[in-house]
Every structure is written in structure tokens, then in C-alpha cells.
Simulated assay, not measured.
Amino acid sequence: MSLQVISIPPTTGQAPIGVIVALHGWGANAEDLADLAPFLNLPDYQFFFPNAPFPHPYSSVGRAWYDFQQNEGIHESRQLLTDWLSDLESETGIPLSRTILSGFSQGGAMTLDVGLNLPLGGLVSLSGYLHPIAEGTKADAFPPTLIVHGTRDSIVPVTAGENARDMLTSLGVAVQYQEFNMGHEVIPAVLNLMRSFVLQVMSQEVPKA
């Protein structure tokens, strides 16, 4: 089992200064998030959009990181993503410390699940949630984390975002949390916030327009 990945190089034609990985949600696919890349206005970064390894039960084009009812596949997806991210540095020449792992909904849950155990530059969970965390989980330094949620989200309630914020904060994660008046979606304001977060944790000046 391997991951199929859409790769979008920097639009500057230069070598990337960082990497952004984005994990799609349950029933979507890599192309859904790849369409959003230009709107982040991060031309110096290389983007990677992996396809989840499992077919979606109700969509011929949708993918899933795991089955919601039985959690089947979660261990396989966790290992696949961990191995792939660990190998990414040798492929791109960019260290994990300059790599942002992000995701939407189920992809946001996988971002937190996998990303807290890797020396990444930052994590972004959009309309996501937190898997149960093993007792005694700790690290020398967790990646800074942005959690964004909609107050009108009928798919993943806003309480899921609040619970993730509270749990991660209690573990010592540097969490930036923001709610928007939106449903289960990604609006332009969310992309603007994500862009600001990336520039902040990467300590890069905002590119001139």
C-alpha cells in the first residue's frame, strides 16, 4: 500500500523554501484541496496533496483515511503518512522543521494524530477533531498548531475544535484557535489565517504583492 500524491512546485521557478502538505477529508480526494493552493498565495512553497489509501463507501471518486464506524484503516493510514513524511525530507531537501502538515475534517484529525509525533514546523487542523490521545503522551517540543472551526458546522460540531484546543493546550502544545461564522467549509478568511500562520511559524516576511 502506498500513497498517491499530487505535487505542486513553487510558482517562482526557484527551489522551495518550505513544504506544505494538505490532507483531504472523508469522501473527498487530493484534487479538492489542490484547487485551493493558489489562494494561499505562498509561491515559494512546494505543496503536496496525498490521496487517502482507502476507497469511500459511497463515492466512486472519494477516498477515506479510515472507516468512521469501526476505525478500520486508521493504523495503516497513520503508518503510511508517518513513513511518507519521514522520507519527504530526502525527496525535497527541505527538513521537517520547515514542513507544515495540514488537513480538513478527517484529514485534520489525521494531521493532529500523526503530526504531534514528528518534528514538523507546524500543524493546521481545519474543521477537524482529535483522536483519543494515549495516556502519558509527551514530547520535548510539539509543533505549533492552528485549529480553525466553524460555529455553524453541522458535520463536525464546534465543540470538537474546542475539545482539541483544550486537550492539546493541556499537553503543552502552542495552540492558536480561531472560530468563524461558517459551516463545514473553507472560506477565504480561513485561507488568509492559514497563510499568516505559515509565515509566522516559518519566520518569513510576507511576500510583496
Rank of each mutant, 00 (worst) to 15 (best):
L3R: 04
L3Q: 00
Q4D: 14
V5R: 07
I8E: 14
A15V: 07
I17A: 06
I17T: 13
G18Y: 05
G18K: 03
G18D: 06
A22H: 13
A22P: 02
L23C: 09
G25Q: 12
A28K: 01
A30L: 02
D32L: 03
L36Q: 13
F39I: 00
N41P: 00
L42R: 10
F47I: 01
F47E: 02
F49V: 02
P50S: 00
P50V: 04
N51E: 15
A52W: 11
F54D: 07
F54Q: 13
F54M: 12
P55A: 07
H56A: 14
P57N: 07
Y58R: 14
V61M: 09
R63V: 05
Q70R: 13
I74V: 15
H75S: 15
E76F: 00
L80M: 08
D83M: 00
L85G: 08
S86C: 11
S86W: 02
L88K: 11
E89P: 03
E91C: 12
E91Y: 11
I94Y: 09
P95R: 08
L96H: 02
R98V: 01
T99Y: 03
L101M: 09
F104S: 01
S105N: 02
G107T: 01
A109T: 01
L112F: 00
G115Q: 11
L116K: 07
L118M: 14
L118K: 09
L118F: 08
L120G: 07
V124G: 00
S125I: 04
G128W: 10
E135K: 08
K138Y: 07
P143V: 04
V148E: 11
V148Q: 14
D153C: 12
D153Y: 12
S154D: 13
I155M: 12
I155H: 03
T159M: 07
M167C: 09
T169C: 02
S170W: 06
V173C: 13
A174H: 11
Q178D: 05
E179I: 05
E179M: 11
N181S: 09
M182L: 12
V186D: 01
V186N: 00
P188A: 04
V190N: 01
N192H: 13
M194Q: 14
S196P: 02
S203N: 15
S203Q: 14
Q204I: 15
V206T: 15
P207C: 14
